[in-house]
């Protein structure tokens, strides 16, 4: 089956990002596909490459990036939620006149339509949040 996954909370603050990751990994291990992982609300903070968690802790952002690379997963950060919270890719940096970008590898910024599309195209949409 093909899954869509919605992540509504940021890393470390709430378990949702961990639950979503472990669910995605288990689904892939069982031979399922992931159509898209969509990050919304504070979930957009999963996509900043500027986090520096303690050495002995999991690196949530890097973990997502690796998962995306290994399994060619489309990971989308909502543009409206990202603008509010300062998650920026090079294009957004230019458009909004910012002095830096911070998006992590494997993530892309796009519109909410991508979430609806995931709901339409995937066989199951699973939501993780607060």
């Amino acid at each position: 089956m093909e899954f869509g996954i919605l992540v509504n909370e940021g890393p470390y603050q709430h378990q949702a990002a961990d639950s979503a990751y472990l669910f995605a990994k288990a689904a892939l291990e069982k031979g399922h596909k992931i159509y898209r992982i969509f990050f919304y609300h504070d979930g957009v903070n999963n996509g900043t490459r500027l986090t520096t968690p303690p050495q002995d802790d999991r690196n949530i952002v890097e973990r997502w990036s690796q998962l995306a690379e290994e399994h060619d997963i489309d990971m989308v950060i909502c543009v409206a939620a990202a603008q509010r919270r300062g998650i920026v890719d090079p294009e957004e940096m230019k458009r909004n006149g910012k002095d830096a970008d911070n998006i992590a590898p494997g993530f892309r910024i796009s519109g909410l339509g991508q979430l609806i599309e995931a709901g339409i195209k995937a066989d199951r949409l699973v939501v993780f949040g607060d």
């Binding site: 669910f23 288990a26 069982k30 399922h32 699973v126 939501v127 949040g129």
Partner: peptide
């Protein structure tokens, strides 16, 4: 259930609703 069992539950049911 473990996470694999969680995945099975989502495929064994028609839809999933999270009570956030």
């Amino acid at each position: 259930v473990d996470y694999a069992g969680f995945v099975d539950l989502t495929t064994d049911h028609d839809s999933v609703q999270a009570w956030l």
